[in-house]
Amino acid sequence: MHRVHLRDFEGPLDLLLFFIRRDEVDVYDIPIARIADEYLEAVRLMQRLDLDEAAEFIYTAALLIQIKARMLLPRPPAEDGEEPEDPRAELVQRLLEYIQYREAGEQIGEQFEERQRRFTRGAANDERARLGPAEDEVTYRASVFDLLSALGAALERTVQASAVIHHDVVRETVHVDEQKDWLIARLTDASEPVTFRALAESRTKEWVIATFLAVLDLLRHQRLALRLGIEPEDFALEIPTATPHEHAALAA
């Protein structure tokens, strides 16, 4: 429950501001000793709960402690009648700047919400075009492990199959670019999605790896479409019938 609350602080300055507001402290005259203690205590609590979150707060905690120490030291009287510099000055300056941007953030946030209540011509298309590729990417990313396990299974099969069939040792060179062309040609001819297993049937290890890399590259450029979930360690490929945008438009 602490965790949720601590996430509400958008950073070390925000937390500092929280203590200042809560205690109704004058920003220009921060009781640094007390605030430093409170801040440190909060950071310790945070550290116990979530180290990652705490890291960014530790610097400010250290800064506060340093300022506290400097406040405790007797400051030499200024010789030329000038005010000696307040050890808090720089922190206060930063805090004041942050307060302004924090407020500006709130203001443009309101502006944004107001604007989102207005719809322009082409807004739907715009939105789909923008979201389309990103959604594809998410699906793709989630399936990399599936792809890898399919590669693993295919390689396993080449070892078994080649042990039986191939007796002559011929060094075969397979280029990824060639495999891309081959894949496109092979899949354009096919009337339905072809599984990677079928494609890799009794091929050499080099061939399977080069073809797999070709598949990855073609997927990245969306020249191939991927079908997963046919078998646990396999996937099927086909030539996409429509561009991603058209897909999105059709699906919507």
Binding site: E10, G11, Y101, R102, G105, E106, I108, G109
Partner: peptide, 8 residues
Amino acid sequence: RSLLETLA
């Protein structure tokens, strides 16, 4: 809020 602050 963090996005809005950064954007500001």
